[in-house]
Simulated assay, not measured.
Amino acid sequence: MKKALSALILAYSVFIFIGCSQSSGNDLESANKVISNYLDALTNKDINELSKYVTSEYFEGFSEEIINELEKNFISAELKESILRESNSKHIIIDANVEVICSEDFIPVGDWQPGRSISTKAFELIKIDDELKINGWGAY
Rank of each mutant, 00 (worst) to 15 (best):
I66Q: 13
D129C: 11
E57Q: 15
N48W: 10
E71P: 03
L42G: 04
T55I: 05
A4S: 13
G115H: 06
I83A: 03
D46K: 05
S103W: 10
S82E: 02
S87H: 04
E78Y: 10
I47L: 09
S21L: 07
I126V: 15
I126P: 00
Y12G: 06
I128D: 08
F17P: 00
S103D: 13
E78G: 12
S23R: 08
K52N: 13
M1F: 13
E124H: 02
G61P: 05
V34C: 07
S24W: 03
E49V: 03
D27E: 10
T120Y: 00
I118R: 06
L39R: 09
S87K: 00
E65Y: 12
K72Y: 12
N37E: 11
K127C: 01
L79S: 02
N88I: 01
F74G: 09
K80S: 13
E99P: 01
Q22I: 11
I134C: 02
R116M: 13
T120E: 06
A77I: 03
E69Q: 14
P108F: 05
N73P: 12
I107F: 14
L70S: 12
F74C: 04
E124Q: 05
I18Q: 02
V98I: 11
P114K: 12
S87D: 07
A41R: 03
R85G: 06
D40W: 04
S76Q: 05
L8T: 11
N88Q: 04
R116C: 11
F59L: 12
L132Q: 02
E69D: 14
N73L: 08
S23H: 05
S21T: 07
V98M: 09
E65S: 15
S82D: 05
N135E: 07
S119W: 03
I66K: 15
Y38K: 09
Y140L: 06
Y12Q: 13
S24C: 09
S87M: 01
D27G: 04
T43M: 06
D46T: 10
K90H: 03
S76C: 08
I16Q: 00
S36R: 08
E65A: 14
N48L: 14
D40M: 14
L84F: 02
S13T: 14
P108Y: 05
G19P: 01
E86R: 01
E124T: 05
S6V: 15
I66A: 15
F123V: 02
K121C: 04
A41L: 08
A11Q: 03
S63Y: 12
L10P: 02
Y58W: 10
I126M: 00
E71I: 07
L39G: 02
W137L: 09
K72I: 11
A122E: 14
E64N: 14
H91A: 03
N88F: 02
W137R: 09
S23N: 10
S56I: 15
F74E: 06
L50Y: 07
Q22C: 09
L125Y: 01
I118F: 05
G61H: 11
N48T: 15
F62G: 12
T55K: 09
L132R: 08
D105P: 00
K72P: 08
N68I: 11
E71G: 07
S63W: 12
K2R: 13
S24D: 04
I83S: 10
E49A: 14
K52G: 01
V100W: 00
G115Y: 08
L10Y: 10
E78H: 14
E60N: 12
L8M: 12
N37M: 03
